[in-house]
Amino acid sequence: VVDQIRLWQIEGERMKTTTGFLFKDFHSTQEFEEVAKYAEELGVLKWKKSARRCMFVTRHEQIADWLKRRASAQQQQPKKAAA
């Protein structure tokens, strides 16, 4: 029981934990920033680092859907993406 209480003491005082999803391996900085903006608007963005193109979000479903829509939109307009 004492161990359990101490566990909770570490958390809060010296460390904070959040369950969610790490997004990484973005194709470009632009893609990263667009997704980060969307995640922030949704209120699910917890942490991000542009230099590493990494972000941590509390929910991933809407972002995954958004990325799929974006990918299919780009496939339909390859010339626009290349310009």
């Binding site: 460390m15 934990t17 369950t19 969610g20 790490l22 990263f32 917890k46 941590f56 990325l67």
Partner: peptide, 17 residues
């Protein structure tokens, strides 16, 4: 497409890390 990996984000001081 970026990848999503499930996990727990830990924010702590450097000594704990």
């Amino acid at each position: 497409m970026p990848r999503a990996v499930k996990g727990v984000l830990i924010e702590c001081d450097p000594s704990i890390k």
